[in-house]
């Protein structure tokens, strides 16, 4: 079995080690004897969404995001169909914001892809720090790091999880991220997947089932170091009385 992972605009959206998410998916497929093909979908490339099983899109600098606007307009219709059709997407930080309707920074409004019914407004206070969630995607808490000035309003959409430590979508709403069909948007860097192997497998399983049918199951891997790295942060910040800042 083969899974094709598209890494969207790695040349423009490459902050905070987000390429680690691609690496994590690839290795966890290979360790199970499956094939993983990673396509670097660079700015200006033609993108055939029909080929993709997973699309990973990371955080970018303001400059990178500004450069991407024109390219995004061109891929919007195909991208939207892919999401509606159950295509698997992980969008982190800047990418998460761009999936929504708009990003408002003071007087300036940057139009998003409008694929999800969410929007973001910039605030003066930047939310920077460790972030830990309780999420239906994973039995273990989801551990990562957030760094964003935007406040994302997800309306009636389902969040990725409930904040156990840190700030999340709006800083004080108690929830973080969004899940719509097989698309996840989140502020969690870390990168997200390596320390949260169950979340990684959630994406892989969705992608495999979509391509090869419901009968596909993932074999178990030994996630001892991953869960230790995860557990260390949970222990430090949640279990031993760490408080949300």
């Amino acid at each position: 079995m083969k899974v094709t992972i598209g890494h969207l605009y790695p040349d423009l959206f490459n902050l905070y080690g987000d390429s680690g998410n691609v690496q994590c998916m690839k290795k966890r497929l290979e360790w199970r004897g499956m094939e993983a093909e990673v396509l670097a979908l660079c700015a200006g490339d033609e993108i055939d969404f029909g080929k993709l099983d997973i699309l990973v899109w990371g955080g970018g600098s303001d400059k990178g995001q500004a450069l991407a606007v024109d390219y995004l307009k061109r891929i919007r219709p195909d991208f939207k169909n892919y999401v509606e059709d159950g295509g698997v997407v992980l969008a982190v930080c800047g990418a998460y914001q761009l999936l929504g309707k708009y990003y408002k920074a003071g007087e300036e409004v940057i139009e998003g892809l409008g694929i999800l019914d969410i929007y973001t407004e910039r605030s003066d206070e930047r939310l920077v720090g460790n972030l830990i969630l309780e999420s239906p995607l994973s039995a273990s808490p989801v551990v990562g790091f957030e760094n964003h000035a935007g406040r994302t309003i997800i309306g009636d959409c389902a969040p990725l999880g409930k904040v156990l430590y840190g700030r999340g979508n709006t800083g004080d709403g108690g929830y973080e991220g969004v899940v719509y069909k097989n698309t996840v948007g989140t502020y969690l860097h870390g990168p997200l997947l390596p320390k949260n192997p169950e979340v990684c497998d959630w994406f892989l399983e969705r992608a495999l089932k979509r391509r090869y049918g419901e009968g596909v199951n993932l074999t178990e891997l030994s996630d001892e170091p991953e869960l230790r790295a995860n557990g260390n942060m949970v222990e430090r910040l949640v279990t031993s009385g760490g408080r949300s800042r």
Binding site: D18, S19, V128, G129, F145, H189, P191, P194
Partner: peptide, 9 residues
Amino acid sequence: GEDVSWLWD
């Protein structure tokens, strides 16, 4: 730096 994600770069 409290964010160690740079190790992935």
